[in-house]
Simulated assay, not measured.
Amino acid sequence: MNTRHLASGSAAALAAALFLSACGTGTGSSGDDTSKSGGGNEVISSYAPGEREQVHGISGKTLDGKPLDLADYKGHVVVVNLWGSNCGPCRGEAPNLVKVAKETEAEGVRFVGINTRDPSREAAIRFEEEYGVPYPSLYDQMGRIVLKLPRGSVNPQAIPSTIVLDPDGRLAARALAPLSERDLRRVLRPLIAENKRA
Rank of each mutant, 00 (worst) to 15 (best):
M1G: 15
T3N: 13
T3E: 15
A7I: 15
G9M: 09
G9P: 10
S10C: 09
A12T: 11
L14F: 06
L18T: 01
L18W: 00
F19K: 08
F19T: 08
S21V: 07
S21Y: 01
S21I: 06
C23H: 09
T25L: 12
G26E: 11
G26V: 06
T27H: 11
G28K: 02
G28D: 12
S30D: 13
G31C: 03
S35H: 12
S35F: 07
S37F: 10
G40S: 15
E42D: 08
I44Q: 05
P49K: 04
G50Y: 04
E51K: 14
R52F: 04
R52C: 08
E53H: 03
V55E: 00
S59C: 02
S59R: 14
S59W: 01
S59F: 03
K61E: 15
T62Y: 06
L63V: 05
P67I: 08
L68T: 14
D72K: 12
Y73K: 08
Y73M: 08
Y73P: 13
K74Y: 02
K74S: 10
V77T: 15
N81A: 11
N81P: 09
W83K: 06
G84H: 04
G84V: 06
G84D: 10
G84N: 10
C87L: 04
C90F: 12
G92Q: 14
E93L: 02
E93R: 11
A94F: 02
P95F: 07
P95G: 09
N96Q: 07
L97V: 11
V98Y: 05
V100N: 11
A101R: 10
T104Y: 03
T104C: 07
T104D: 06
E105C: 07
A106F: 01
G108S: 02
R110V: 10
V112W: 03
V112S: 09
G113D: 11
I114S: 01
T116Y: 01
T116W: 00
R117H: 08
R117I: 00
R117M: 02
P119W: 07
P119I: 07
S120W: 00
R121H: 04
E122N: 11
A124L: 10
A124H: 11
I125N: 07
R126W: 06
R126S: 13
F127S: 09
F127M: 05
E128Y: 13
E128M: 13
E130L: 09
V133R: 04
V133P: 11
V133N: 06
Y135A: 01
Y135G: 01
P136F: 10
P136S: 08
S137G: 09
S137A: 12
L138S: 09
L138I: 12
L138R: 06
Q141D: 14
Q141W: 09
M142W: 10
M142T: 14
G143R: 00
V146M: 00
V146H: 00
R151E: 15
S153R: 06
P156H: 00
P160K: 14
P160R: 06
I163F: 00
I163Y: 01
I163V: 13
V164W: 05
L165E: 01
D166N: 15
D166G: 13
L171S: 05
A172I: 09
A172V: 12
A175R: 08
A175G: 14
L176W: 01
L176E: 03
L176Y: 07
L176R: 11
A177T: 10
L179T: 05
S180N: 02
R182L: 01
L184A: 07
R185P: 03
R186A: 15
L188R: 10
P190S: 05
P190H: 09
I192A: 00
K196P: 02
K196H: 07
A198H: 13
